[in-house]
Design a binder for these strands. Structure first.
Lengths: 116, 116
DNA sequence: GCCGTGGTCAACCGTCCGGTTGAACAATCC
DNA sequence: GGATTGTTCAACCGGACGGTTGACCACGGC
């Protein structure tokens, strides 16, 4: 899976990984520290971190034999930009539709109410 | 996969689905219309729409035998809220670290300054 | 009523994903 | 040097995912 956006979205699609991100927002941590609260092996968490790292969401440095994990905030922008773009567009369309409906005389009343 | 956030992120992790969202931001469309540009069967696109619908990103109404697909903007908020929260936190941490480094006289030059 | 069109459901297939276990690697402690 | 601690690599497993084909359902047009 090549494209960065897919990697980021996909990385955050997993609740455990989102939780890891949440905890890293508070403070850097090692793999073992991160793994502690979860009921999985440290290897599984290491894999999760690899996914987050490939998505550019975290970076790992070296500090003695430990490998502290650090959250990288920049990549979030990629997502927010994408999301905001289409949300704005959709809301714009919605607003315009609203205008149309408001300006519409009851000439074109649809025989059936729109089921929710 | 129960939780809504996972569903939304996961739904947008696929480039085809993101493209569908992008096109729906411009205008509602039917399944066949949506499927046209892609090199896959209409059934595959229907599946994609099911994923987007389960994530709350689109809704399908009924209009004769057509089923126009409509983009729902609200769910985006769920994501942006989540993202913004941790991005702010991470940037805050970054800023604080910056302050620490700036305010630090070379007084504390013993090898490791991580006294709690 | 019957045909054609738009759309979904069901079964299947190959691949990816999250998890495991077991071994290996890297750096520190003694 | 050898034991210990922290982390990753490799192989494997079951389940989900994106895709296909084929059948089916729901309409509107004649």
């Amino acid at each position: 899976m090549a494209d960065p956006l897919s990697r980021v979205f996909s990385a955050l699609a997993d609740p455990t990984r989102r939780d890891i991100v949440a905890r890293l927002a508070v403070a850097d941590a090692t793999v073992n520290e991160l793994a502690a609260p979860y009921d999985v092996t440290v290897q599984a968490v290491s894999k999760h971190l690899k996914v987050l790292e490939d998505a550019g969401l975290v970076s790992r440095s070296r500090e003695a034999q430990r490998r502290p994990v650090h959250l990288e905030a920049e990549v979030f922008d990629l997502m927010t930009k994408w999301i905001e773009r289409y949300r704005r567009q959709a809301e714009e369309r919605y607003r315009r539709l609203d205008d149309v409906l408001r300006d519409m005389p009851d000439a074109v009343l649809p025989q059936e109410g729109t089921a929710s």
